[in-house]
């Protein structure tokens, strides 16, 4: 597979969220603010790329029976690095993301890519695949967050857009709206495909 193809496949055609319905727990949790979604997305991209790279690098040596343990260890290490990095340099963002950065460890996308791709392909390809999958995930987060933040807070990235006349929709701030938005998004994206098929 060509590099570009790998990227497009993991970011769009096989997008982890809308095609594989993975990683939705975190997609629901942090998407009431654009900034939080972006930081979360970057964290996931970083973790995916580097864990993919590392797992691919040592894939020949990982004993098959304990590969899940090894993957979890590697993923967890990178997530802790992201967490420490945010705590050190961006304490405000780290505080507002709360436990969700640490919970990147449990994001099924990362384990999924490790199992499905990094364990079988070269390190460079795995990095591209990781960045692709991460960006696909970030894209979904940002789309949902743009709607939720706009209707829920009247702002985007914390900048007021709608002004005082706007009555904030509390439901958009709370978790249920993320379910609606995600479902609508998946519906819109997957409908044309099903018609074609």
């Amino acid at each position: 597979m060509k590099k570009k193809e790998i990227f497009i496949t993991s970011a769009f055609t096989q997008n982890s969220v809308w095609r594989q319905i993975l990683g939705i727990c975190s997609a629901l949790a942090v998407t009431n603010l654009m900034l939080n979604s972006l930081v979360m997305g970057l964290g996931v991209i970083f973790t995916l790329a580097l864990s993919g790279f590392t797992i691919s690098l040592i894939r020949e040596y990982i004993p098959k029976r304990i590969r899940m343990m090894v993957q979890t260890l590697i993923i967890a290490s990178y997530v802790i690095i992201v967490d420490l990095f945010l705590k050190t340099f961006y304490p405000e963002i780290s505080k507002s993301l709360g436990p969700y950065v640490g919970l990147i460890i449990t994001n099924c996308i990362i384990m999924g890519r490790a199992e499905a791709f990094a364990g079988k392909n070269s390190p460079v390809d795995s990095v591209i695949d990781g960045i692709g999958a991460g960006m696909g995930y970030t894209l979904v987060l940002l789309i949902i967050a743009s709607v939720r933040e706009l209707f829920g807070f009247g702002s985007l990235f914390g900048i007021p857009i709608l002004g005082d006349w706007w009555t904030k929709w509390s439901i958009m701030v709370m978790a249920p709206s993320a379910f609606f938005m995600l479902a609508i998004l998946i519906w819109i994206i997957n409908t044309p495909r099903q018609k074609r098929g």
Binding site: Y61, P63, V70, I81, L84
Partner: peptide, 25 residues
């Protein structure tokens, strides 16, 4: 013993990396 040794080594490596980061931050 290979899986055990492998796991020990890789755990040691990653804990080492994390400890360095932690010290720094």
């Amino acid at each position: 013993v290979y899986p055990i040794i492998f796991m020990l080594i890789i755990t040691a490596i990653f804990i080492g990396i994390l400890a360095t980061f932690y010290q720094f931050s």
